[in-house]
Structure formats: structure tokens, C-alpha cells
Design a protein around this nucleic acid. Structure first.
Lengths: 223, 223
DNA sequence: CAGGTTCCGGAGGGACGCCTCCAGATCGTC
DNA sequence: GACGATCTGGAGGCGTCCCTCCGGAACCTG
């Protein structure tokens, strides 16, 4: 694949810039024609440059995913295990709140680009370490697992979406409650210690990280 | 409005029965033509009997909402305040899990029928009582408010939707975590004690119940 | 500035869901 | 069983979004 022609490259950049905005505002299911129009480009040009929605999503959100991965790394650098863990949780929720598209990507099992999956997978490894460290320090409940974090991401994404218009900060309270629940306490044991569950693709990855293995089936269907 | 002709009444019943099933399976945004087809009826007949989607939803889900209201009443009959509260939370989440349409209705601020709103409002009053009772007994955290329950309903609805296929019981773990968070403990105070927040219509109702008042604006728009 | 290559954009077909219209079938009453 | 009132169903217009096709414009190399 050689370099694009000058105008083509310009258009590509314009599409990408607009896509970032639109996905952030409207989520990953925004009409592609909106993006093309706002970029001052025909719909065909968008399709030529990004043949599938996933390609466009991947290109547009790569930096945001990198922020997610970076947050995990920074959290590991925090000396206090609980502070690192709690800060990480708040940080990724913050990222989610700033970018509805990222929320979709983190919470729903959208078909994602290989590059993004790789980034996410390594990040997940660090997250597991973060979790184990916090558990070992006695501040995070023993039965906590990575999947619980995914549940939280799903939940906060929904809370944000529903309350965005009326109470845009409601999710902060929700996340604070969740962190309270995650903190160690003499609580009744949770149902279904989910050693075997596997939900979204991201969760399958998480599980794989932790050595559970799992059929990462394809889903070749479109739409 | 006089009685319907016999065949019309029969069709109405068939539509309603099918609507209950379809809404439970697919949520409240299921195509109306699916319902008409499954009921063995033309789409026009459905529209004639239920001119708007909300009317159909209201008629189809009335009993389910009644179950919700009943759960609040039963919970108040439980002697132990915490057991009553926790049982209620689990019960309504269970109801939500069994009926995706009910989940939509409880969590999203869908335009709802007057009859349903009324039922929901009285139920919400009982819920507030339930909450206050549990707080007074020292088992529910002091800063808990009715809106937190709504947040939970929103969150569990999302969790159920995303994990339905792969881990249909994941929501149970999630709800158990939430109940842990709600239980009294020496926790850092939550942000935004939401005396003033008002999110969905249901939440506005809740707030109104508690005497906050609030502009229950109209949203006359269709669709 | 000419020629070939690359790129562009809008038209347009397909799928889906909403909702309405009206010719004809069905009911129930006398 | 006949007649008027009531009810029916599917065709079809509307809107949205998807994606492709192809005549023509823009680039860039010499």
C-alpha cells in the first residue's frame, strides 16, 4: 500500500477528525453519512477509505484506547494498591464519560480491529495485575475478578447514556457506590464466582489473560 | 366507547397476548409488524386498536407493573427492614430479567400511559417508605436516595442486555455487589448528594414523591 | 500543459420500520 | 337472509440508513 494522493490524504484526515467528534457525541452507531457530510466529503469517499465501520472506528478511537491502556500503566505506578485501583476505575469511567464511542467500545462487544484488540489485551493484563495487587493488600475484596470491572463499564455506559441530558454527573455517584462495593468488607459471598463465565469478546480476552482459555468465536455476520 | 364487535375483541386479545411475549423477548422497540404478524392480524388492525406504541405498551405491561407495585407492598410487610429492602431490590431485578420490556419501561424514561404512571407513582411512595425504614434501622447507608435505585435499574438493564447471551446470570452478581454498596458501612461520602438532580421522568416522579417538586415537562413529540 | 492514473460525489437500489388509505369481508340485527 | 355498521388486510408512501456504481474532476509526472 503506497502513499495516498495529496487530496486523498487530506480527505482521510478530515474524515477521521470528524469521526472522532461524531463518535464521541453520538456513539459508535452514528450514521456514516453524518460523518461524511460534516467532513465535506461524499459518502463514497468515506467508504473507499474505510470499507467497514469497524475500520473507521478503529482508526478514530485508537488514541482513546491508548489512553485506556496508559491509565492501567499509570495506576500500577501508584504506590498504594487501593489508590491505584480506585483511581484507575475512576479514570476509565471518566474517559468513557467524555467519549460515548469509547463507552460503546469498552462495554459492548463490538467487532474491533486487531490493533485495538492487541492494545486492549495488554492493558487487560496490567489490569489483572492491578487487581491482584489490590487484593493482596487486603483492600479489594477477595472474590473480585476482572469481569466485574467489565460489568461496571457496561453499567456506567448505560447510566451515562440515560442520564446524560438531565443529570450528567450521576455516573460519578454510581461509580463511587461501586467502589464502595469493591472495597473489602465482611460481606456475604457473591453468587456465581464467575470462573467460567465468558460474556463479551473483551471479557473472553480477559479470561484468556487469566488462563481460562475460551472459544473466541467469529461472528462473521454483518449488522 | 361501547363494546367491540366479537371478532374485533378477539383480535385485540390476540394482539395483546403476542405483544406481551414479543416485548418480553425483544424489548419495547420491537417492530410492531412482528407483533401483528405473529398475532395473525394485519398491521392496520393493530394500529386501529392501539393507535400509538405507548398505548400498546401500557396495555401489555400493566400486569407487570402491577407486579412491581406489589413487590413494594410485600417488601413493606417483611418485618426486618434490611431483608425487606434487599428482597425488594432482588425481586424487581428478577422481574426485569424475565421481561426485557419491563426493563426498558423501568429504566428508560419511555412515554408511558397515565394508568401506568399512577401505579408507578404510588409504588414509588412505598419504595421511599421502604428506604427510610431501612435507613432508620441502621442497615441502609444514610446517604441513600430513591434515585440510586433507579440508577441500579438502569445499570442492571444494561448488564442483562449485554450479557444475556453469554452469561445470563451475571446480573445476579452485579446486584449482589450493589446491595453490598448500599449496606451501611464507614465509607467515604458520596459525591453530589442528589437532592436536586432529576433525571428521567420516573426519577422526577420519585423526587416529587419526596417533596422536591420539579418541572415534569411534556415531551409531546412522537417517536 | 498533456496524459494517465487516482480519486471524487451523488445518484440510486435495497432493507427495514412507521403509518394511512380504502375496497372488500364480516358481523349482528331485524 | 339481507342490509347497514363495523372491521379487516395489504398495498404503498414516507423516512432512514446501508452500500455500490460510474461519469467526470483532480492530481502529478514528465
Amino acid at each position: 500500500m503506497r502513499g495516498l494522493r495529496a487530496d486523498a490524504e487530506r480527505n482521510r484526515a478530515a474524515i477521521l477528525a470528524v469521526a472522532r467528534d461524531v463518535f464521541a457525541e453520538q456513539g459508535l452507531e452514528a450514521p456514516l453519512e453524518v460523518i461524511a457530510a460534516r467532513a465535506g466529503v461524499g459518502i463514497a469517499t468515506l467508504y473507499r477509505r474505510f470499507p467497514t465501520r469497524e475500520k473507521l472506528v478503529a482508526a478514530a478511537l485508537l488514541e482513546k484506547i491508548a489512553l485506556y491502556a496508559g491509565a492501567a500503566e499509570q495506576a500500577l505506578a501508584v504506590p498504594d494498591p487501593w489508590a491505584g485501583f480506585a483511581g484507575f476505575v475512576q479514570r476509565i469511567c471518566e474517559l468513557q464519560a467524555c467519549d460515548r464511542g469509547l463507552g460503546d467500545l469498552l462495554s459492548m462487544a463490538l467487532p474491533a480491529d486487531e490493533q485495538i484488540e492487541q492494545l486492549r489485551t495488554t492493558a487487560n493484563g496490567q489490569v489483572i495485575t492491578l487487581i491482584e495487587r489490590a487484593k493482596a493488600s487486603g483492600t479489594l475484596r477477595d472474590d473480585f475478578v476482572g469481569e466485574d470491572l467489565l460489568l461496571l463499564l457496561i453499567a456506567t455506559a448505560a447510566v451515562m447514556q440515560v442520564t446524560r441530558a438531565d443529570a450528567p454527573d450521576a455516573w460519578r455517584r454510581f461509580v463511587a457506590l461501586a467502589l464502595d462495593a469493591f472495597r473489602r468488607q465482611d460481606a456475604p459471598s457473591l453468587p456465581e464466582p464467575p470462573a467460567t463465565v465468558q460474556m463479551t469478546r473483551a471479557m473472553a480476552r480477559l479470561a484468556a489473560e487469566r488462563g481460562c482459555g475460551g472459544p473466541a468465536h467469529d461472528t462473521t455476520t454483518r449488522r
